[in-house]
C-alpha cells in the first residue's frame, strides 16, 4: 500500500518536473529564436532573404551583408570610416566619461548621505528624491531651449554634462549600500587620522567595488542604448551615436538589402551582449537591488 502510494507520487513529481522543463525551454526558445533568426539572416544573400520561401539555414553563406554595412560611410567628413564604426566610437566617448564621473559623484554623495552629519542633509536628500518624480518627457522641450541658448545643440554636451553630476537612482542605491557598512570601520579610520575624503577613497570605495561595477555597467548600457537624446541633439552624421547610425542604416538598407540590415543589428548588440556575458553576475545583482528598496 505504502509502496504504491510512493510510486504514484514519484510519477506525479516526474510529470511536474517535465512540465517545468517544458515551460523553461519554451520560454528560452521564445527569447532566443528572434536572435538566431537575425543572425542567420545576416549571412543570407539579398535574394534569398527577400523570398517568402523561408528557410532557417541560409542556402548559401555569404558575408555580403557585413561587407555592405562596413562599406557604408554616407560620404561625410568621416569619409572612409563606415558609419557604424564611427557611430560606435562616438557612443563610447559620449557614454564612458559621464558614466564614470557620474558614478563618482553619485558614490561620494551617497557616502555623505549615509554616514555623515551635516546641515541641510535631509533637505538635500528630499530634493534628490524629487528628481525621481519628474517624468523625463516634461524636460524635453525646456532643456532643448536652454541648450540652444548656450550653443550646446548639435554637440554631444547635452548628452554628457548632466550625467556627470550623478543620478538620483544611483545615489539611492549606493546610499543603501554604504548604510550597511559598520560605522566602527569609519571611526577606526578616523583615529588613524584619515579625513572624510580619505575615508571615502581608501575605505568606502574599495569596499564597494562590486556595487560600483554593477552601477557602472547599468549606466553604460543605458547610455549605449539611449535613442531619444541623440536623436534630438546630434544632427551631423559625424556625431551620430550607434543608435542613430542604425536609424540611418535602416532608411538606407531596408527593402534594399535585408541581410545588411541584420548584419548591422548583430554588430550593434554584440558589445552589450558580450559585456553581459562577461559580467552577468554584476548585472543581475545591480538590477535586482535596484528594485529591492522602494
Amino acid at each position: 500500500m505504502i509502496k504504491a502510494k510512493k510510486k504514484k507520487l514519484t510519477a506525479k513529481s516526474l510529470l511536474s518536473q517535465a512540465l517545468i522543463y517544458a515551460g523553461l525551454i519554451l520560454f528560452a526558445l521564445w527569447v532566443l529564436l528572434p536572435f538566431s533568426l537575425v543572425l542567420l539572416t545576416s549571412f543570407k544573400g539579398i535574394i534569398e532573404a527577400n523570398s517568402l520561401d523561408f528557410t532557417w539555414w541560409p542556402k548559401e553563406f555569404t558575408l555580403q551583408g557585413y561587407e555592405k554595412v562596413l562599406e557604408y560611410d554616407m560620404g561625410t567628413a568621416y569619409e572612409g570610416v563606415p558609419l557604424i564604426i564611427s557611430g560606435f566610437i562616438n557612443t563610447l566617448w559620449i557614454v564612458i566619461p559621464p558614466t564614470l564621473l557620474g558614478l563618482f559623484s553619485s558614490a561620494i554623495s551617497a557616502y555623505a548621505f549615509a554616514k555623515l552629519q551635516f546641515r541641510f542633509r535631509d533637505k538635500m536628500f528630499s530634493l534628490l528624491l524629487a528628481t525621481m518624480m519628474i517624468p523625463g518627457t516634461i524636460l524635453l522641450t525646456p532643456t532643448f531651449i536652454i541648450y540652444n541658448q548656450i550653443g550646446w545643440v548639435n554637440t554631444p554636451l547635452p548628452l554628457m554634462i548632466p550625467g556627470m553630476f550623478g543620478a538620483a537612482t544611483c545615489v539611492f542605491f549606493m546610499r543603501q549600500f554604504y548604510s550597511g557598512i559598520p560605522t566602527e570601520l569609519i571611526e577606526a579610520a578616523e583615529i588613524d587620522g584619515m579625513g572624510y575624503f580619505g575615508i571615502f577613497f581608501k575605505v568606502m570605495v574599495p569596499l564597494s567595488v562590486p556595487a560600483l561595477l554593477a552601477q557602472a555597467l547599468l549606466g553604460f548600457i543605458g547610455g549605449y542604448n539611449d535613442y531619444l537624446g541623440p536623436l534630438i541633439y546630434l544632427q551631423d552624421p559625424e556625431m551620430y551615436t550607434l543608435q542613430i547610425a542604425m536609424n540611418q542604416l535602416k532608411s538606407y538598407f531596408a527593402g534594399r538589402n535585408v541581410p545588411a540590415m541584420m548584419a548591422a543589428t548583430v554588430i550593434s548588440i554584440i558589445p552589450t551582449v558580450t559585456l553581459y556575458i562577461i559580467a552577468q553576475k554584476r548585472f543581475v545583482e545591480g538590477v535586482a537591488t535596484s528594485g529591492m528598496k522602494v
Binding site: S105, S106, I108, S109, Y111, A112, F113, L116, Q117, F118, R119, F120, R121, M124, F125, L127, L128, A130, T131, I134, L139, T143, I161, P162, M164, F165, G166, A167, A168, V171, G195, Y196, F197, F200
Partner: peptide, 18 residues
C-alpha cells in the same frame, strides 16, 4: 563642510538640469 560638499554634486546637477 565635507559632508555638504560631497553630497552637493548631484544636488547641483538636479537644480541645473532638473
Amino acid at each position: 563642510g565635507s559632508g555638504f560638499i560631497m553630497a552637493s554634486i548631484p544636488v547641483i546637477g538636479f537644480v541645473l538640469f532638473g
